[in-house]
Design a protein around this nucleic acid. Structure first.
Length: 280
DNA sequence: GTCCAGGCCCTCA
DNA sequence: TGAGGGCATGGA
């Protein structure tokens, strides 16, 4: 049905699975072995690892190769982004904050994830912490997703459809807190036709953000996360508590957004990773 | 017990 | 336009 499971190997640069895994943009990558991830997106799954620093191996049904290449951003112009970043790193010097963040996060990529899954995941993320977000998303998939066993006997659960999340009382016991009513309302908006996610994803940045912020439970920050991670707007720049601290501490005169026009979201992602994961 | 977590919403000025 | 409080839940 999906074709025989095959291992694809692609040459990559500035790509690091571990950095991406710890960057807060994914909540249900599962580490299986030292350098091995079970990665699910929507109702698809693959196993990914890096046999060499410049090689990404992806094991998936053979007709999903294009999906996963897109998911991992392999067609995106990261060499161009890095030319700009390197220019500014040389100009600012090695001690500058962004130089250190970029050096530490040189394998960061902003993935192309399914918009619906990102929308629900980041509604859950509000006023929450990452371990609990992961637990809630996992519980949501386990209870309302479909159980799938791959040809390699890997078991995973698909991300629930909007139809599966419309009943508020079903959502109890998943640790969602007050966010449960937002999720049920959004699911109902989708199934009822009041919210067309692909249509929002096709809008330009400003119109899409306005449409998202009109949805109960989605404010400025979550809207920017959905735009960045799920709708391909690489210039979206979510400001959460971590980024707020960095901006206040390192850029009291304002963040030089114009330097990174078109890929500010990638810079934001590097800062988030560096700030949380690296000893400075 | 208090504080915080990838915030949002409502009220009030 | 901005400040302040409430909100579910659980770990530190």
């Amino acid at each position: 049905m999906n074709g025989k499971t095959t291992t694809f190997e692609w040459t990559v640069s500035h790509f690091d699975l571990d950095q991406i895994a710890e960057s807060g943009q994914v909540f249900r990558w599962e580490r299986r072995g030292p350098e091995n991830y079970l990665i699910s997106a929507g109702d698809r799954v693959c196993v990914a690892y890096m046999p060499a620093p410049d090689k990404l191996a992806v094991r998936c049904p053979e007709n999903q190769a294009a999906f996963w290449r897109y998911y991992f951003g392999l067609g995106d112009p990261y060499p161009e982004y890095w030319r700009t970043i390197n220019t500014w790193m040389e100009r600012d010097g090695p001690d500058a904050y962004l130089s250190k963040a970029a050096a530490a996060a040189s394998g960061m990529v902003v993935l192309h994830q399914p918009a619906w899954e990102i929308m629900i995941s980041f509604v859950i993320s509000q006023n929450n912490n990452i371990p609990r977000i992961r637990a809630s998303v996992a519980a949501l998939c386990r209870r309302f997703g479909k159980r799938i066993t791959t040809e390699d006997d890997e078991v995973y659960y698909t991300f629930p459809s909007p139809e599966a999340l419309t009943e508020l009382e079903d959502l109890a016991g998943l640790g969602l807190g007050y966010r449960d009513k937002y999720i049920a309302a959004i699911a109902r908006a989708v199934t009822g036709g009041g919210l067309d996610v692909p249509m929002v994803a096709a809008m330009d940045y400003s119109r899409a953000k306005a449409a998202l912020k009109a949805i109960p439970g989605i404010g400025e920050k979550v809207a920017n996360c959905i735009l960045l991670y799920g709708m391909g707007h690489l210039d979206a720049f979510p400001v959460d508590t971590w980024i707020r601290r960095v901006l206040d501490r390192e850029f009291p005169g304002g963040f030089p957004m114009e330097r990174y026009a078109g890929f500010g979201g990638l810079i934001q992602q590097m800062i988030f990773y560096y700030e949380r994961r690296v000893e400075k």
